[in-house]
Design a protein around this nucleic acid. Structure first.
Lengths: 122, 122
DNA sequence: CTTGTATTTTAGTTTAATCTTAAATACGAA
DNA sequence: TTCGTATTTAAGATTAAACTAAAATACAAG
């Protein structure tokens, strides 16, 4: 757990992303789709911060970039987060958030952005 | 470890304060004196954030307010920080930082502020 | 090579955090 | 009560973080 990792972990937005990645690896676009109040670019930038802090790792799969949490980098904090996010309730919630975004117009939709208002979800 | 507590750790400045408090309780003025690049007021405000997040507790001793880290509130992150800041090298460094500020004109000095430049210390 | 999808990067804007100065409060001593 | 030290609070200015739109890059498929 480096200094940078701690700082990266402490941002609510990045916590949200980490939480979405917690139950399994996801492509950048899937994470973005589950966060309709921010742009794809914003998510990508935050993923970059997490990546550079060593909290996630990236893998290329065709044209998609798949991100995965590096639990080993989190050490003891990882277990704490596991207690927070690892339980059935959370998993269900994350699954719902991710599924919800798939219900819309499926293939080829250029990901129309919502009208941007106040920050809310957490 | 609440959500707010984790988020409070996001600021490098607050990490610095926490680090100074790590080896033992200190009065607000002592912390401030060890951070010559920011005003006393700024330190006081950050201490307030840490206090409200439950990461430190305050005790009144005469006219001084003494702050102490609430390790029990840090949970797993506490152990991570202990590994980071608990070793002899860090302790020595903190001791030096605190001692250094005592060498100057001691009593009654209205704490003259340094000329403020770029942020540097960590 | 061209098109289409997925994602990142750049550059500039907005928003939120942090900081400063000045004034206010708290406590102790005279 | 008045003064001096220690610290907090208020209001406004500065700075850094986060965000957006648009352009750029990456890969696959035709």
């Amino acid at each position: 757990m480096t200094h940078d990792a701690l700082t990266a972990l402490a941002s609510p937005r990045r916590q949200e992303i980490l939480r979405l990645l917690w139950t399994g690896e996801r492509a950048a676009g899937d994470v973005s789709a589950a966060m309709p109040d921010v742009s794809f670019a914003a998510v990508s930038l935050q993923l970059k911060v997490l990546l550079e802090a060593g909290l996630v790792e990236r893998r290329t799969d065709g044209q998609r970039r798949v991100y995965r949490v590096r639990r080993e980098a989190l050490g003891a904090v990882g277990s704490a987060l596991e207690r927070m996010w690892g339980d059935a309730l959370w998993r269900l919630r994350v699954a719902a958030e991710l599924a919800e975004t798939r219900r819309g117009p499926r293939p080829g939709t250029p990901r129309r952005r919502r009208r941007l208002s106040r920050r809310s979800a957490s």
